[in-house]
Every structure is written in structure tokens, then in C-alpha cells.
Amino acid sequence: MTRDDTSTLIDTAAANLGLHIAPEWKDNVTMFFEVARGMARLVEETGAAAASEAAPVFTPRSVE
């Protein structure tokens, strides 16, 4: 994904969520999104997405 693609994704997703990203904040937001992408790549390489049960298991509680 190019920097332009990332920029477009951020603008589109932010608009869909009703978030306003001021022009002077955009570079930082983009940088943090790219950091997260790198982190996600590391996680995806483990195959975890198909290999395990997600950690936050919901346990229904009895009505008291």
C-alpha cells in the first residue's frame, strides 16, 4: 500500500466514522497508522488468526 493509499484510507474511514482529522494532525495520524500496520504484519505472520481462540472469552453470568 502506498502512502497515497494510506492517506485515502484514513480520509475515507475517518469520514465514515464521523471523525475530523485536522490537516496539521494528519501526518502524525498517518505515522501511527503505519506503525500499527507494521505491528499487525508481525502478528499475522504467526498464523494466529486461524490458530487459536481469541483471548476475551465471554462467560454468561447467572441472574441473581
Binding site: 484510507l9 484514513i10 474511514a13 475517518a14 466514522l17 471523525l19 482529522i21 494532525w25 495520524v29 498517518t30 501511527f32 497508522f33 500499527a36 505491528m39 499487525a40 502478528v43 499475522e44 494466529a48 488468526a49 481469541a54
Partner: peptide
Amino acid sequence: LAGALLPASWYVSA
């Protein structure tokens, strides 16, 4: 702001 835009699959994989 960046975190609000992350794809759900990244979170679930984590």
C-alpha cells in the same frame, strides 16, 4: 485517531 481506524481483523488476530 489512528487507532479508531484500524481494521477489525488486526485487533482480532492480536
